[in-house]
């Protein structure tokens, strides 16, 4: 009798352990069909799949370096920064989502001074929404995460301001709110939140516009110098352009697989 009870308890204990494994492992790395956040590992998060918004397997952006002029660049920057309540700070603690940069800074390893127009010519830079984003890898709270459609998002509610993502980003695409941004925003747009001091922010490929079925602000005002579309759709405009023109991406040697392509 004593022995059988002992045996029963052992088996019951093992069984409980076994039954708890499945939900635990699912919690640890939830992704795919069940798009809830994994308990431990950073996982891909759901993107809207239905409704009136725009959907894609992998959102990418094309920037035509030849069509961009300083005037168009400024228009894109203004459209983005005004509509996203990006504060206008003059110091080196400034905030930028999209900005113009000379070619030799954008492609330090890939430029030489004899290219047409010289390397002082500028182009636009923004978050690359990498396929393998180092910022997502290092974030200790999953405040920055990747959606299934490739967009790297920020959860401003969760960011603790450790700035590890800024150290990890090889493109300098992230900005930190060193101060309260509100006094540096002229007229805050009510439809989009401002940020608060102590969080990191960056371009989000206008995910809020995609949800409403609209293209990103910069693409809309770029006079055709920028394109936006689905890399996984062979019939998409961006795929056709990529197939017909030569394009490069920033720092390809790092294996981040940027989602922003530059047409040369």
């Amino acid at each position: 009798m004593k022995n059988t009870r002992r045996k029963f308890l052992k088996v019951a204990g093992l069984a409980v352990l076994g039954w708890s494994m499945r939900p635990a492992s699912r919690l640890m790395a939830a992704h795919g069909a069940q798009s809830a956040e994994g308990l431990f590992m950073a996982s891909k998060h759901g993107a809207p799949k239905h409704g009136e918004g725009l959907h894609a397997g992998r959102w990418i952006m094309l920037i035509d370096t030849n069509k961009l002029t300083p005037a168009i660049e400024q228009k894109c920057i203004n459209a983005c920064h005004t509509n996203h309540n990006v504060p206008d700070i003059e110091t080196k603690q400034n905030i930028k989502w999209i900005w113009a940069e000379p070619l030799h800074n954008v492609f330090p390893e890939q430029m030489h001074e004899n290219i047409p127009g010289g390397t002082e010519r500028t182009t636009l830079v923004l978050c690359n929404h990498c396929t393998n984003p180092p910022c997502v890898r290092v974030c200790p709270t999953k405040a920055t995460f990747q959606r299934e459609d490739g967009i790297v998002m920020m959860d401003f509610h969760r960011c603790i301001g450790c700035r590890y993502c800024m150290a990890a980003c090889p493109y300098g695409s992230r900005s930190f709110n060193f101060m309260d941004p509100r006094p540096h925003i002229k007229d805050a747009i009510p439809e989009f939140p401002t940020r608060t001091k102590g969080v990191v922010e960056k371009c989000e490929f206008c995910s809020e516009r995609l949800a409403e079925g609209k293209l990103p602000y910069c693409v809309e005002v770029s006079e055709g110098a920028m394109m936006f579309g689905d890399l996984e759709d062979p019939e998409s405009e961006v795929r056709k352009v990529l197939a017909s023109r030569y394009s490069i991406r920033r720092k390809p040697e790092l294996g981040t697989e940027p989602g922003v392509y530059y047409l040369i």
């Binding site: 998060h45 759901g46 993107a47 809207p48 918004g53 998002m153 959860d155 509610h157 995910s207």
Partner: peptide, 12 residues
Amino acid sequence: WRDDVVREGMHE
């Protein structure tokens, strides 16, 4: 709502 919209893309 916040987590649904920001993290899961569920708007409705």
